[in-house]
């Protein structure tokens, strides 16, 4: 479900906008939380919304301050304010829309629909990118893994799979070798995406060249060429099979 967060210093406005959004029945969860810059930032981190409705003038700063404090904007921004003079600045912050108070419900609905469309397009884009990167011809690349005792230089074609263990990552290599490195799986996922690797589940990143088979039992798992078994998260099913088709 798409989550929409409403940040405004007036209680009344937060409730009004949520009521309006609910009345559109677009299957969006409206969350009226965040009454200033501080609590707004916190609410974004807590709720991880897809859309943020943002007031501009707030007691301890502006809506722009909220955006500046969020390093990675994974949501669409729609400003709602009585002030028309910040529209240009809002565009510079890549706002999807800019609504003036009092809010016209049909304008609000159009903005919400625009946001839903943008969210879906973004999702498709990122899946397509992953797909594109994964079917590119494999370049001969090496990876340096540092442990306390040694520095390993390994070819990507030696890596069968990687497994997360909190802030550590275990590399399972051809020939039964295993290397434990104190970096998160997320970091390696970033490095290895585009080289025929896929994060098939929260804790597992696999080299698609070493996939032996897919077993349907146990909710579905991937068996690697070295015999190890890795769960496949339902969210990754589609992309996994799509890539296999292209191999």
């Amino acid at each position: 479900m798409i989550k929409a967060l409403i940040i405004d210093d007036e209680n009344r406005t937060r409730d009004l906008i949520s009521k309006m959004i609910n009345s559109f029945a677009l299957g969006i969860e409206a969350i009226p939380a965040g009454e200033n810059v501080q609590s707004g930032i916190q609410a974004i981190l807590d709720y991880k919304p897809d859309i943020v409705f943002l007031d501009i003038q707030m007691p301890d700063g502006t809506g722009f301050d909220v955006l500046k404090a969020i390093p990675e904007k994974t949501f669409e921004v729609i400003f709602i304010t009585a002030h028309e003079e910040f529209a240009i600045k809002a565009i510079k912050f890549s706002a999807l829309d800019y609504l003036l108070k009092p809010v016209d419900p049909s304008e609000l609905q159009a903005a919400v629909e625009k946001a839903i469309k943008a969210i879906h397009e973004k999702k498709e884009d990122s899946q397509f990118d992953a797909l594109q990167n994964n079917i590119q011809p494999n370049q001969k690349r090496r990876l340096v893994l540092k442990t306390q005792e040694s520095v390993y230089v390994i070819g990507l074609d030696e890596i069968i799979r990687c497994e997360a263990d909190r802030n550590y990552t275990s590399f399972f290599l051809t020939g039964g070798k295993k290397i434990l490195v104190s970096k998160t799986l997320k970091e390696y996922e970033t490095m290895l995406t585009g080289h025929n690797f896929l994060r098939v589940q929260q804790s597992h990143l696999i080299n698609l060249d070493y996939v032996d088979r897919y077993d349907k039992g146990n909710g579905g798992s991937v068996v690697m060429k070295d015999g190890s078994e890795v769960p496949l998260s339902p969210a990754k099913r589609d992309i996994f099979f799509e890539i296999l088709e292209k191999l």
């Binding site: 007036e10 009344r12 108070k101």
Partner: peptide
């Protein structure tokens, strides 16, 4: 004025 209009709107929605 605009904020006041917005208040009326919220009463209407309630």
């Amino acid at each position: 004025f605009f904020n006041a209009m917005s208040v009326i709107q919220s009463y209407i929605y309630e």
